[in-house]
Design a protein around this nucleic acid. Sequence first.
RNA 1: GCGGGCGUCGCCAAGUGGUUAAGGCAGCGGCUUGUGGUGCCGCCAUCCGGGGGUUCAAGUCCCCUCGCUCGCCCCA
Length: 426
Amino acid sequence: MAGIQVSRGTRDILPTEVSYWQFIEATAREILGRAGASEIRTPIFEQTELFLRGIGEATDVVGKEMYSFNDRGDRGLTLRPEGTAGVVRSFIENSLYAQGDVQRLWYVGPMFRYERPQAGRQRQFHQLGLEVLGSGDPRADVEAIAIATDILKAIGLKDLTFDLNSIGDKDDRTQFRAALIAYLTPYKADLDPDSQDRLTRNPLRILDSKNKETQKILHDAPSILDHLSDSSKARFDRVQQLLADLSIPCQINSKLVRGLDYYSHTVFEIQSADLGAQATVCAGGRYDGLVTELGGPETAAIGWAMGLERLVILLQKLGNLAMASTVDFYLVSRGTAAEGQALRLVQQLRQAGFKAELDLSGSAFGKQFKRADRSSAKACLILGDAEAEKGTVQLKWLASGEQAELVQAELASHFQGWRDRLDGVS
RNA sequence: GCGGGCGUCGCCAAGUGGUUAAGGCAGCGGCUUGUGGUGCCGCCAUCCGGGGGUUCAAGUCCCCUCGCUCGCCCCA
């Protein structure tokens, strides 16, 4: 039990679990590809400055959750806590905006946040995200959302709730902020401590407080939706209408605000009731100001990210993924000459497209057959001293027990027949 | 960063201060030294996350520490 263990908040993804990951990633890759999105891979660490400016210095993520360090050259670096900032940095640095009107970029990979680990929340976790850069059209919002819901649907998730809101533009929020402060200030003493603190620092965040008392007070609070400018409101209406056209059901939640500073207008969150406190499975929104904030040309943009660990948890709960990987042929051999020939045959089978496993134990035939069973192989190829000498091999189909002796040199002539038989069996 | 629960073999799990730490699954070996799936037999924790302490005596009580877990916070 002593010895070195994984770091707190990190974990291994073992072979029994990794098939879920591969399934999710393959499904997403397929759907994103069909939508004309291109994968982009950016570094795991970036200059700390990028996140300070991109995410916002006042946010908790930047304030107390980043893995920041100085390297040997005394550069201030940070393990990326999210994916958008790096993609936008790359978009600007590589002048991707010059390559056409809209860039649809997606990414997948590990992110790092120093948080207290919890179910569905780790210090190293994985996100898959999409960024659509270069369009402020409401259709871009809905297209991005539709891609996300397509992915979630394709991997088989049900019973998800989709919350939608608009937090308007900067001016809308300035107005609303004043109204909210004016409303809440008389109740200040009754708010939970965190919310009291936020009243001046970041009053919008009070809206999604889980504190019951605070929520009661918020019941009659002004709504952001009543403080949208005409154009912001029209934009939001259009988004809702387009979603309805696509039959994507959503509920308007005027208290939905996002934790990162760069969002504007459309924000949304997709949650599952089966995840406990960390219920959000996918979240995102529009961030029209971020590209200029990071030194690029004015570029409208919308994006989202999914938490892969959470998707895997949900998928495992459904338990509907039959991941049994069966073996076609299991090679049983004993004796120096036979073992050498078996190694050659197993390679020949693999190169012909069969899934073949070679028993390396060198133990008694009985033991090797037991292992063949456990591997759920369909057939055994058996080589002992007698076969090695004659240049033959025994083929035994495990389900029926039928066995035949074949000439090694003629093995390839049986391949097509075996393929047909294996296809029939499975 | 704050609060609650938990931590016994690879996995599940008994064990409520008293001699040698149940059991099941898995694994390994044998019956069966060239033929499997069943069956039977045997082997698999000098040790109870780690470190201190209390006691004649601790896996069982106390303290510290590490980790997991649930919630807060935060967020994907």
